[in-house]
Design a protein around this nucleic acid. Sequence first.
RNA 1: GUGGGUAUAGCUCAACCGGCAGAGCAUUGGACUGUGGCUCCAAAUGUUGCGGGUUCAAGUCCCGUUACCCACCCCA
Length: 411
Amino acid sequence: MYQKPKGTRDLLGRELQRLEALNAAARAFFGQNGYEEIRTPTFEFAALFDRSIGETTDIVEHEIYKFEVNKKLYALRPEGTASVLRAFIENKLRLPVRFLYLWSMYRRERPQKGRYREFLQIGIELLGESKPFYDADIIERGKQYLQSVGARDFTIELNSIGCPECREAYRRTLEDYLQPNLSRLCDDCRRRFERNFLRIFDCKKESCQRLYDDAPKITDKLCGECAQHYVDVKKYLRYFGVDYVENKKMVRGLDYYTRTVFEFKHGELGAQDTIIAGGRYDLLMRELGGPDTPCIGWALGPERLLLTMPEELPSVKARRAFFLIGVGERYLPTMISLRTQIHNNGHRCFLGDPGEPIKHQMKKADRFKADHVVICGEDEEKEGIYTVKEMSTGRQSKIPVAEFESFLIHA
RNA sequence: GUGGGUAUAGCUCAACCGGCAGAGCAUUGGACUGUGGCUCCAAAUGUUGCGGGUUCAAGUCCCGUUACCCACCCCA
């Protein structure tokens, strides 16, 4: 027997419906807000991701699916931002522009709750806007989107990680603070400090965290411009009515972020509690060979979001379902035209096999979760009616053929 | 990549110290030949994840392996 690769899933039934409901809501909502949907190739030249995500990140080092064909090294995309910027540059588009993407991403991680090797991201990117107003704007739009699909109980965490100059100054300050305590850090943190020093704050060990609680924070060491930017972002968030908590220890896993970073978290999700994560990346476009262009964006994990939501999404509307029963094959033409009429009114409709006993067809109707059964037989033909049975109550009524259309409209 | 847990009928799970492979739900048929669900009666269902080992005897013990779950790492 064949099995799917580890960390992948077959999407069908309820689960697929739920995901598609989030996609449909995102297309509608962000479309209204001027975000244009974009699709790029699922694979790119591997160098694109090395350059953008950061060569010392774990993603690039051992989580990317890479393959070589004809001496060219390709990679399945592990995230969306790099591809969007590459497409922007390559297609010589004009600024400013807003993009929406709904893509599968690929990372060779060990799967666990809310984490897969092929997973979805709904992301937005706003290219060409540098002002703090826009940082607040896309955070607020994220909040509004979550609320529109019925998500509750998430908190927004905010931080600024400054520009490379701020970070270099801060690194020295932090080093001075940690130097005397180096022996109390865990092995992971010592390694992190060498490779990507901000990431020490992600450590889950309490002994390390106690040390970091009293450590100087990057927000205290921002340069003048970055500090002002951060102050203004918070000002606009208040104008927008967005509640947030400052998390001075929040940093990002990707190297390209500058200044504003944020996460939307949900408390009851276990270790993978981040539903939306994003931030500003003002230097990446230039890094990838494009024009100097400030950008900001975020990505949402639909699988994780769904873990926080009820089985029946409020946004999934159940359409009426009809099942047609024929008593004898000679009623098939009637049934077929009836089906067209029902479909034209926007309802679902299935045909029973009119050669089968009524009992069998009735049972099928139940299986299909039909709301209404319409019976076409000798009695109906004589009286010029259809017998309509409402399945939830068992009540039956005779509806004259001429009045059936208006019945459908009100069903 | 590291650690812990799990794997038995379509599904959820039992099976004592190693001793005939079980139940509920679902399925199928009947009670009910123009009416589903509800009720009652009956039937069918297994490579105990896979491969090896120990034993008179393995679902049970041992080794390996695969998948899933949870956590670390990392991240949406």
